[in-house]
Protein backbone atom coordinates (compact mmCIF):
# COMPACT_ATOMS: atom_id res chain seq x y z
CA UNK A 1 0.00 0.00 0.00
CA UNK A 2 2.69 2.45 1.09
CA UNK A 3 4.67 1.46 -1.98
CA UNK A 4 1.90 2.56 -4.29
CA UNK A 5 1.63 5.85 -2.48
CA UNK A 6 5.26 6.42 -3.41
CA UNK A 7 4.38 5.61 -6.99
CA UNK A 8 1.52 8.08 -7.02
CA UNK A 9 3.70 10.67 -5.31
CA UNK A 10 6.19 10.21 -8.14
CA UNK A 11 3.54 10.84 -10.79
CA UNK A 12 2.54 14.08 -9.09
CA UNK A 13 5.85 15.37 -7.77
CA UNK A 14 8.33 14.23 -10.43
CA UNK A 15 7.30 16.89 -12.96
CA UNK A 16 7.83 19.55 -10.29
CA UNK A 17 11.24 18.21 -9.37
CA UNK A 18 12.19 17.46 -12.98
CA UNK A 19 11.17 20.92 -14.15
CA UNK A 20 13.17 22.46 -11.34
CA UNK A 21 16.21 20.36 -12.21
CA UNK A 22 15.84 21.40 -15.85
CA UNK A 23 15.67 25.05 -14.79
CA UNK A 24 18.75 24.75 -12.59
CA UNK A 25 20.48 22.89 -15.40
CA UNK A 26 19.84 25.77 -17.80
CA UNK A 27 20.95 28.32 -15.24
CA UNK A 28 24.18 26.48 -14.43
CA UNK A 29 24.83 25.96 -18.14
CA UNK A 30 24.41 29.69 -18.73
CA UNK A 31 26.79 30.51 -15.88
CA UNK A 32 29.37 28.14 -17.30
CA UNK A 33 29.10 30.05 -20.58
CA UNK A 34 29.44 33.42 -18.86
CA UNK A 35 25.78 34.32 -19.27
CA UNK A 36 23.13 35.22 -16.72
CA UNK A 37 20.72 32.55 -17.82
CA UNK A 38 16.96 32.17 -17.56
CA UNK A 39 14.96 32.09 -14.31
CA UNK A 40 14.99 28.79 -12.42
CA UNK A 41 11.30 28.31 -13.23
CA UNK A 42 11.83 28.88 -16.95
CA UNK A 43 11.01 25.29 -17.89
CA UNK A 44 7.58 25.64 -16.30
CA UNK A 45 6.96 28.88 -18.18
CA UNK A 46 7.92 27.16 -21.42
CA UNK A 47 5.60 24.22 -20.90
CA UNK A 48 2.82 26.48 -19.61
CA UNK A 49 3.11 28.48 -22.78
CA UNK A 50 3.14 25.41 -25.00
CA UNK A 51 -0.19 24.37 -23.52
CA UNK A 52 -1.61 27.80 -24.37
CA UNK A 53 -0.76 27.48 -28.03
CA UNK A 54 -3.04 26.39 -30.81
CA UNK A 55 -3.32 22.63 -31.30
CA UNK A 56 -1.71 22.15 -34.68
CA UNK A 57 -0.65 18.76 -35.93
CA UNK A 58 0.12 16.83 -39.09
CA UNK A 59 -1.76 13.68 -38.12
CA UNK A 60 -4.06 13.29 -35.14
CA UNK A 61 -2.36 9.98 -34.29
CA UNK A 62 0.88 11.75 -33.37
CA UNK A 63 -0.76 13.23 -30.28
CA UNK A 64 -1.83 9.77 -29.21
CA UNK A 65 1.69 8.37 -29.57
CA UNK A 66 3.17 11.20 -27.55
CA UNK A 67 0.54 10.68 -24.88
CA UNK A 68 1.67 7.04 -24.83
CA UNK A 69 5.26 8.21 -24.45
CA UNK A 70 4.31 10.36 -21.48
CA UNK A 71 2.10 7.74 -19.82
CA UNK A 72 4.62 4.94 -20.09
CA UNK A 73 7.47 7.07 -18.86
CA UNK A 74 5.35 8.12 -15.88
CA UNK A 75 4.40 4.47 -15.39
CA UNK A 76 7.99 3.24 -15.41
CA UNK A 77 8.97 5.96 -12.95
CA UNK A 78 6.01 5.19 -10.69
CA UNK A 79 6.93 1.51 -10.76
CA UNK A 80 10.49 2.38 -9.83
CA UNK A 81 9.55 4.58 -6.91
CA UNK A 82 6.95 2.09 -5.76
CA UNK A 83 9.87 -0.29 -5.32
CA UNK A 84 8.87 -2.51 -8.23
CA UNK A 85 10.83 -4.83 -10.46
CA UNK A 86 13.76 -2.98 -12.04
CA UNK A 87 13.55 -5.07 -15.20
CA UNK A 88 9.92 -4.12 -15.69
CA UNK A 89 10.87 -0.48 -15.14
CA UNK A 90 13.46 -0.74 -17.89
CA UNK A 91 11.08 -2.41 -20.31
CA UNK A 92 8.39 0.19 -19.69
CA UNK A 93 11.00 2.90 -20.24
CA UNK A 94 12.03 1.33 -23.54
CA UNK A 95 8.41 1.03 -24.59
CA UNK A 96 7.84 4.69 -23.87
CA UNK A 97 10.72 5.64 -26.17
CA UNK A 98 9.31 3.38 -28.85
CA UNK A 99 6.13 5.47 -28.65
CA UNK A 100 8.22 8.60 -29.22
CA UNK A 101 9.91 6.97 -32.20
CA UNK A 102 6.58 5.86 -33.71
CA UNK A 103 5.22 9.34 -33.12
CA UNK A 104 8.14 10.82 -35.03
CA UNK A 105 7.77 8.27 -37.83
CA UNK A 106 4.03 8.85 -38.10
CA UNK A 107 4.40 12.44 -39.29
CA UNK A 108 6.45 11.43 -42.37
CA UNK A 109 8.63 14.49 -42.26
CA UNK A 110 12.24 14.01 -43.35
CA UNK A 111 13.53 15.76 -40.23
CA UNK A 112 11.36 13.67 -37.95
CA UNK A 113 12.48 10.51 -39.79
CA UNK A 114 16.13 11.26 -39.11
CA UNK A 115 15.22 12.17 -35.56
CA UNK A 116 13.38 8.88 -35.08
CA UNK A 117 16.33 6.92 -36.42
CA UNK A 118 18.69 8.70 -34.10
CA UNK A 119 16.38 8.05 -31.19
CA UNK A 120 16.51 4.34 -32.07
CA UNK A 121 20.30 4.46 -32.18
CA UNK A 122 20.22 6.05 -28.77
CA UNK A 123 18.08 3.20 -27.47
CA UNK A 124 20.44 0.65 -28.99
CA UNK A 125 23.44 2.31 -27.41
CA UNK A 126 22.06 2.73 -23.94
CA UNK A 127 19.81 -0.27 -23.46
CA UNK A 128 22.53 -2.91 -22.86
CA UNK A 129 24.08 -0.66 -20.23
CA UNK A 130 20.82 -0.05 -18.41
CA UNK A 131 20.01 -3.76 -18.35
CA UNK A 132 23.48 -4.56 -17.05
CA UNK A 133 22.94 -2.03 -14.29
CA UNK A 134 19.98 -4.03 -13.09
CA UNK A 135 21.99 -7.26 -13.42
CA UNK A 136 24.70 -5.64 -11.31
CA UNK A 137 22.17 -4.64 -8.67
CA UNK A 138 20.84 -8.18 -8.69
CA UNK A 139 24.25 -9.78 -8.26
CA UNK A 140 25.09 -7.41 -5.44
CA UNK A 141 21.83 -7.36 -3.53
CA UNK A 142 20.17 -10.58 -4.63
CA UNK A 143 17.02 -8.92 -5.89
CA UNK A 144 15.62 -7.14 -8.91
CA UNK A 145 13.15 -5.26 -6.73
CA UNK A 146 14.00 -1.61 -6.25
CA UNK A 147 12.68 -1.67 -2.70
CA UNK A 148 15.05 -4.49 -1.75
CA UNK A 149 18.01 -2.97 -3.60
CA UNK A 150 17.43 0.31 -1.79
CA UNK A 151 17.21 -1.52 1.54
CA UNK A 152 20.41 -3.47 0.89
CA UNK A 153 22.20 -1.50 3.60
CA UNK A 154 25.71 -1.43 2.15
CA UNK A 155 27.40 0.92 -0.27
CA UNK A 156 26.55 -0.65 -3.62
CA UNK A 157 28.87 1.83 -5.32
CA UNK A 158 31.87 0.05 -3.77
CA UNK A 159 30.68 -3.30 -5.07
CA UNK A 160 29.79 -1.97 -8.50
CA UNK A 161 32.29 0.77 -9.39
CA UNK A 162 32.68 -0.49 -12.95
CA UNK A 163 28.94 -0.67 -13.46
CA UNK A 164 28.65 2.88 -12.15
CA UNK A 165 31.29 4.15 -14.57
CA UNK A 166 29.43 2.54 -17.45
CA UNK A 167 26.15 3.95 -16.21
CA UNK A 168 27.63 7.41 -15.85
CA UNK A 169 28.97 7.21 -19.40
CA UNK A 170 25.58 6.17 -20.77
CA UNK A 171 23.78 8.70 -18.58
CA UNK A 172 25.27 11.46 -20.73
CA UNK A 173 23.28 10.09 -23.63
CA UNK A 174 20.19 9.37 -21.58
CA UNK A 175 20.09 12.94 -20.25
CA UNK A 176 20.57 14.12 -23.84
CA UNK A 177 23.82 15.90 -23.16
CA UNK A 178 26.87 16.52 -25.32
CA UNK A 179 28.86 14.71 -26.66
CA UNK A 180 26.13 12.09 -26.96
CA UNK A 181 23.08 14.26 -27.57
CA UNK A 182 22.57 12.66 -30.95
CA UNK A 183 18.85 11.98 -30.58
CA UNK A 184 17.68 15.27 -29.23
CA UNK A 185 19.15 17.97 -27.11
CA UNK A 186 18.10 20.97 -25.10
CA UNK A 187 20.21 23.55 -26.85
CA UNK A 188 20.64 22.82 -30.55
CA UNK A 189 17.34 24.25 -31.67
CA UNK A 190 18.35 24.83 -35.26
CA UNK A 191 20.05 21.51 -35.78
CA UNK A 192 19.04 18.13 -37.06
CA UNK A 193 19.26 16.67 -33.57
CA UNK A 194 16.01 18.44 -32.82
CA UNK A 195 14.55 16.32 -35.61
CA UNK A 196 12.45 14.07 -33.46
CA UNK A 197 10.30 16.94 -32.22
CA UNK A 198 10.19 18.90 -35.49
CA UNK A 199 6.53 18.24 -36.20
CA UNK A 200 5.29 18.46 -32.63
CA UNK A 201 4.02 21.79 -31.42
CA UNK A 202 1.92 23.25 -28.66
CA UNK A 203 0.67 20.84 -26.04
CA UNK A 204 2.22 17.82 -27.77
CA UNK A 205 5.65 19.38 -27.47
CA UNK A 206 4.78 20.26 -23.90
CA UNK A 207 4.11 16.59 -23.20
CA UNK A 208 7.50 15.64 -24.64
CA UNK A 209 9.08 18.15 -22.26
CA UNK A 210 7.20 16.75 -19.27
CA UNK A 211 8.24 13.24 -20.29
CA UNK A 212 11.86 14.44 -20.23
CA UNK A 213 11.33 15.66 -16.68
CA UNK A 214 9.93 12.32 -15.60
CA UNK A 215 12.84 10.56 -17.22
CA UNK A 216 15.39 12.80 -15.54
CA UNK A 217 13.90 12.05 -12.12
CA UNK A 218 13.84 8.33 -12.89
CA UNK A 219 17.51 8.43 -13.91
CA UNK A 220 18.34 10.35 -10.76
CA UNK A 221 16.54 7.59 -8.89
CA UNK A 222 18.68 4.91 -10.51
CA UNK A 223 21.81 6.91 -9.69
CA UNK A 224 20.53 7.18 -6.13
CA UNK A 225 20.39 3.38 -5.79
CA UNK A 226 24.17 3.19 -5.99
CA UNK A 227 24.40 5.36 -2.87
CA UNK A 228 21.11 4.45 -1.22
CA UNK A 229 22.64 3.20 2.02
CA UNK A 230 23.24 6.74 3.21
CA UNK A 231 20.75 9.44 2.11
CA UNK A 232 23.18 12.27 2.80
CA UNK A 233 25.90 10.73 0.67
CA UNK A 234 23.27 9.97 -1.96
CA UNK A 235 22.09 13.57 -2.21
CA UNK A 236 25.65 14.84 -2.56
CA UNK A 237 26.58 12.11 -5.04
CA UNK A 238 23.53 12.67 -7.22
CA UNK A 239 24.14 16.42 -7.25
CA UNK A 240 27.79 15.88 -8.18
CA UNK A 241 26.89 13.41 -10.93
CA UNK A 242 24.38 15.84 -12.42
CA UNK A 243 26.83 18.73 -12.17
CA UNK A 244 29.48 16.63 -13.88
CA UNK A 245 27.03 15.86 -16.68
CA UNK A 246 26.33 19.57 -17.15
CA UNK A 247 30.05 20.25 -17.18
CA UNK A 248 30.66 17.55 -19.79
CA UNK A 249 27.75 18.93 -21.79
CA UNK A 250 29.36 22.35 -21.90
CA UNK A 251 32.90 21.29 -22.62
CA UNK A 252 32.46 18.76 -25.39
CA UNK A 253 31.26 18.91 -28.97
CA UNK A 254 28.67 16.49 -30.27
CA UNK A 255 30.09 13.16 -31.41
CA UNK A 256 28.99 11.36 -34.55
CA UNK A 257 26.41 8.67 -33.91
CA UNK A 258 28.84 5.89 -34.84
CA UNK A 259 31.34 6.98 -32.23
CA UNK A 260 28.63 7.51 -29.64
CA UNK A 261 27.22 4.04 -30.16
CA UNK A 262 30.61 2.34 -30.36
CA UNK A 263 32.15 4.04 -27.37
CA UNK A 264 29.16 3.46 -25.14
CA UNK A 265 29.16 -0.21 -26.07
CA UNK A 266 32.89 -0.41 -25.48
CA UNK A 267 32.70 1.21 -22.06
CA UNK A 268 29.73 -0.99 -21.21
CA UNK A 269 31.65 -4.06 -22.27
CA UNK A 270 34.96 -3.27 -20.60
CA UNK A 271 33.99 -1.58 -17.38
CA UNK A 272 30.62 -3.13 -16.62
CA UNK A 273 31.21 -6.65 -17.80
CA UNK A 274 34.61 -6.76 -16.07
CA UNK A 275 32.99 -5.58 -12.87
CA UNK A 276 30.25 -8.17 -13.13
CA UNK A 277 32.74 -10.92 -13.96
CA UNK A 278 34.86 -10.12 -10.93
CA UNK A 279 31.74 -10.03 -8.86
CA UNK A 280 30.51 -13.33 -10.19
CA UNK A 281 33.77 -15.12 -9.66
CA UNK A 282 34.22 -13.50 -6.25
CA UNK A 283 30.70 -14.51 -5.31
CA UNK A 284 31.36 -18.15 -6.20
CA UNK A 285 34.64 -18.33 -4.32
Amino acid sequence: MIAWLYGIAFVILAPLLGGLVAGIDRRVTARMQGRVGPPILQSFYDVGKLFEKERAYVRASQNFYILGYLIFIAFSGALFFAGGDLLLVIFALTLSHIFLVIGAYSVTSPYALIGAERELIQLMAVEPMIILVSVGFYLASGSFYVSEIAAYGGPLILLLPGVFIGFFYALTMKLRKSPFDIATCHHAHQEIVKGVTTEFSGSTLGMVEIAHWYEAVLLIGITWLFFAWNPLVAVVAVALVYLAEIFIDNTTARAKWGFALGSIWLVTLVSTVANLAVFYIGGMA
Binding site: A30, R35, G37, P38, Y45, D46, Q190, S201
Partner: peptide, 21 residues
Protein backbone atom coordinates in the same frame (compact mmCIF):
# COMPACT_ATOMS: atom_id res chain seq x y z
CA UNK B 1 25.93 36.17 -26.80
CA UNK B 2 26.84 36.60 -23.13
CA UNK B 3 26.73 40.40 -23.45
CA UNK B 4 22.98 40.56 -24.21
CA UNK B 5 21.97 37.00 -23.34
CA UNK B 6 18.33 37.10 -24.36
CA UNK B 7 17.84 33.65 -22.85
CA UNK B 8 17.51 35.37 -19.49
CA UNK B 9 14.09 36.53 -20.71
CA UNK B 10 13.26 33.01 -21.80
CA UNK B 11 13.84 33.91 -25.44
CA UNK B 12 15.00 30.98 -27.51
CA UNK B 13 16.04 31.11 -31.14
CA UNK B 14 14.33 28.01 -32.48
CA UNK B 15 14.90 26.97 -36.04
CA UNK B 16 11.42 25.60 -36.35
CA UNK B 17 8.28 27.56 -37.22
CA UNK B 18 6.13 24.99 -35.43
CA UNK B 19 7.83 25.78 -32.14
CA UNK B 20 7.99 29.54 -32.59
CA UNK B 21 5.84 32.37 -31.27
Amino acid sequence: TPLYDVERFGIINTGNPKHAD
